[in-house]
């Protein structure tokens, strides 16, 4: 696992059934592109988050394939429909095989 990876997620704590909400996510990650060279001129190997997914109660909201052209500390904003109370699960997939997972519950009423 890359060191010090830390997600930040903004999801409202409640919504009405069927409401559209805006979700914002940020995660600390260097997103080493594989294009850079170190002081000795050797290429620095690529090390990025290559996929991000968000599901709500097991159904997909968004699934993004990410390339080295995504900025350091990747930011993703999107809109979700909230059909009922439940849990959003966010996953970031690292090149090194690590998966960083966070969840946020939302109430409806």
């Amino acid at each position: 696992m890359a060191s010090g990876v830390k997600p930040r997620i903004k999801v409202p704590s409640s919504a009405s059934a069927g409401e559209t909400i805006i979700i914002k996510t940020l995660i600390s990650h260097k997103m080493e592109s594989g294009q850079r060279k170190d002081k000795d001129g050797k290429p620095i190997p690529r090390s990025i988050i290559n996929r991000f997914t968000c599901e709500f109660n097991g159904q997909s909201v968004i699934d993004i394939t990410m390339e080295p052209a995504i900025s350091t500390n990747p930011y993703i904003q999107f809109e979700a429909t909230v059909p009922e109370a439940g849990e959003f699960v966010f996953k970031w997939f690292d090149d090194d095989g690590s998966v960083y997972e966070e969840s946020k519950t939302i109430s409806v009423g």
């Binding site: 830390k6 930040r8 997620i9 903004k10 940020l26 600390s28």
Partner: peptide
């Protein structure tokens, strides 16, 4: 203008 847009806040969390 929003702390969830501000990448600096990741480091505040840390």
């Amino acid at each position: 203008i929003d702390d969830f847009d501000n990448p600096g806040m990741i480091f505040v969390d840390k």
